[in-house]
């Protein structure tokens, strides 16, 4: 309800001086009017500035103190990136990603040194390269705050996939560069790489992600890498003709993950092989 009258100057002066003698209804009307009338607020400010030296000195003191506090030191430190990155790749994962890059670099070095003797090591290592990082994204041994993560609302497949994506964002470009230098076309290793990642995630819900990654990496190393290096014959499993099967495996892994989308959310059954 707007009144058409503004506050009389005499009343405004009495209000500004904190006069206890103003009737309650008049006081109420003054305050209600001040709430919506900017010009009367301005007049009140002017009255306070000229008449009320106590309030003006208090305001000046507060302003001086605040200015001193504000100018002293930065309010918010500039280091924002660690926590932004941690939402995708927690710090426990960083050493693993560095290790993966080193392994790829070592494979590339061997390829370039013995280019005529061996089948491309980069090509052989590529399918299991993400597993080193994937093993660390959901494991009590490799993430110090894992106990807090699994008890948090965000725990679940979505968080696992987010971290997996962070691993792939590092590993796939590293492999692409190494593959380009070593002459291993991405078409030959990209699908196997994704198939192993999806397989580890699907298997991880059953036996633990770090165990699943270890089992798959061991199987590939003993079943494919070792025989290929020993016999110096190119690996049949990475011939272009096998790509449809790898695509099928990626699909199976994705379907399993979609069907079990509540996985990694959960209450863990404490099993005989530990917590």
């Amino acid at each position: 309800m707007k009144s058409l009258e503004h506050i009389p100057a005499a009343l405004l002066r009495r209000y500004a001086s904190g006069d206890a003698g103003i009737a309650a209804d008049a006081l109420w009307a003054v305050e209600a009017h001040l709430e919506w009338c900017a010009s009367c607020r301005e007049r009140l400010g002017a009255v306070v500035a000229t008449d009320d030296s106590e309030t003006t000195s208090l305001l000046a003191r507060v302003q001086a103190n605040l200015a001193g506090e504000l100018s002293r030191g930065a309010q918010m430190p500039a280091r924002r990136w660690p926590r932004r990155v941690a939402r995708w790749a927690p710090p426990g994962l960083w050493p693993r990603l560095a290790m993966t890059t080193l392994v790829i670099a070592a494979a590339l070095g061997l390829d370039l040194a013995f280019s005529n003797v061996l089948a491309s090591l980069v090509l052989l290592v590529a399918p299991v390269a993400p597993l080193l990082g994937v093993a660390a994204i959901w494991s009590a041994g490799l993430d110090p705050v894992h106990e807090l993560v699994v008890a948090s609302p965000r725990a679940g497949l979505y968080l696992v996939l987010r971290r997996t994506l962070a691993v792939l964002v590092v590993v796939i470009p590293a492999l692409a560069v190494a593959g380009w230098l070593a002459g291993a076309a991405p078409a030959r290793w990209l699908l196997p790489c994704l198939a192993f990642t999806a397989g580890a995630l699907a298997l991880g819900e059953l036996i633990g992600l770090n165990r699943a990654a270890a089992v798959l990496a061991l199987a590939w190393t003993s079943g494919v890498i070792a025989p290929t290096v020993l016999t110096a014959r190119p690996p049949l499993l990475l011939e272009p003709a096998t790509l449809p099967y790898w695509a099928g495996l990626v699909g199976v892994g994705a379907v399993v993950l979609v069907l079990r989308r509540d996985s990694y959310t959960g209450l863990r059954r404490s099993t005989w092989f530990g917590r």
Binding site: P77, R79, P82, R83, A86, R87, P90, P91, G92, D143, P144, V145, H146, E147, L148, V149, A151, S152, P153, R154, A155
Partner: peptide, 26 residues
């Protein structure tokens, strides 16, 4: 929840760590 073996990220500041946990708690 404060677990018995309280793990943390050594390179995080206290504020960054608590903020990260607040993010995990949605």
């Amino acid at each position: 929840y404060l677990p018995q073996e309280f793990g943390y990220y050594r390179r995080f500041t206290v504020r960054e760590f608590v903020e990260y946990m607040a993010w995990l708690k949605e």
